[in-house]
Write a protein that binds this DNA or RNA. Structure first.
Lengths: 239, 239
DNA sequence: GGCCGTCTGTGCGCTACCTTACATACAGAT
DNA sequence: ATCTGTATGTAAGGTAGCGCACAGACGGCC
């Protein structure tokens, strides 16, 4: 039988003051998040907010013609479903599990009650939301100005930061969907990185061999976002 | 002597309940916002939040190499300086006046006090912030997938919605900076629109002749953002 | 009326990425 | 051991947008 893991693997849950933690703990529900699961669909109202621990969730926008682009990524540093406390109840984007894992969820009503009290939870979640905004903004800029190769490095690093080990279970096709580019483009980029000895991959398994090398190759966008997360959420356990 | 204009031209100020309005009114300060003025710089802490009435403000990200891209635009529907109530105090982007005009500002401290009370102001501002997030996300997607021509239409429409008349004072060079493209690209796009009879322009003055025509030409991104603003901020006066 | 700075138009070669098409290779199943 | 579906590699031709260079054109100023 599986051992129910520690909610505090999620940095936001870990950062809760004792009082809030005690109130939340009985309401938190452990959930498995399998690869590809759609956690919420564009325009749909959410029943829960999700605090990933080992899973990574991709916030995707899907265009009318079926093309897509990732607008942000959420892992154990954050929470999925900000529209619940921001007040909109739904968003125009979709949340998909990009890397299988687990997380904890809290009923929407409980979160809203907590939010009304304007206590530390409110400030924590709003600071997280600002970090997420930074990621969104940087994605927009990066999409405009940077080369696919660089964006691929950025994407790998963002995923790596939210993972335990250094292996991603992820096909090039899926990465292409996230980045909003062709699969062949990812193949070419990945080939270059492999030839440079930075990664190794094989049928849907990517292993990062040289993290510093990736950081050298990526555009400034990765560091900007990382720094802003660290600045806005300093009370959280280091990655 | 100039007549001090009505703060309620800003939709957020107009949507304040009476109690809050009375509290704020004596603290609101009228400001002119001339074209090109940098309202805040990346990483700098803000002293005020700004509620534009007739001005339009562009949120720009400037890359290390000097290239730039607009991540969102704020007019009389919104507020500049969300990082003050989100808790980050600063952002990685820059705010520049894209269309000269006026607005009202409120000291940061006053806003934060208001926010602590977890009243209607908090919910109003958070819903606005979610709308802004939608704009950011759509900008990212649009940058990835859509043609310059379509993006130009989107940009013109977003500006038009935040203007009184139908004339923009704006050179093609400036538009290019916002969109993060070459000036020549904007020239070509604008030529096409002029030949199609949708706009007329002359040395930094662009007049929109056929709004519906622009809406037909633009990508889906414009409508998505517009609809989301309307949904999230329905209590505000129609544009 | 002429000057000059700014704004707009145009052309050319270049590159990144796209579309399409197909070839290869690996992993698990029968 | 072969089969089959999926993942990855490769190639040809097309295009949007870029960098660069320069020409015209408008408008305010002396």
């Amino acid at each position: 039988m599986p051992i129910t893991p520690d909610p505090k693997l999620n940095h936001l849950l870990a950062a809760l003051p004792d009082a809030e933690w005690c109130r939340w703990q009985p309401m938190l529900q452990w959930v498995k998040l399998p690869l590809g699961e759609v956690m919420y669909e564009s325009g749909r109202t959410l029943g829960h907010v999700y605090f990933p621990t080992t899973a990574i969730i991709s916030l995707l926008y899907v265009l009318e013609d079926g093309a897509s682009a990732e607008i942000a990524v959420v892992g154990n540093e954050g929470v999925v479903g900000i529209s619940l406390f921001m007040g909109g109840e739904s968003t125009t984007s979709r949340a998909v599990v990009q890397s299988a894992g687990e997380g904890w969820r809290l009923p929407a009503r409980a979160l809203k009650q907590e939010f009304e009290q304007a206590g530390p939870v409110l400030h924590l979640l709003l600071r997280y939301t600002q970090a997420l905004i930074t990621q969104l903004a940087q994605t927009a800029v990066c999409n405009r100005h940077h080369l696919l190769d660089q964006q691929l490095c950025r994407w790998l690093l963002l995923s790596l930061d939210r993972l335990q080990g250094s292996e991603l279970v992820m096909t090039q096709e899926l990465i292409a969907n996230m980045l909003g580019v062709r699969r062949e483009g990812v193949t070419e980029g990945a080939l270059k990185l492999q030839k440079a000895g930075l990664i190794h991959y094989q049928r849907g398994h990517i292993t990062v061999l040289d993290r510093a090398g990736l950081e050298k190759r990526t555009c400034e966008c990765y560091a900007v976002v990382k720094k802003e997360y660290d600045r806005l959420l300093p009370d959280l356990p280091a990655q």
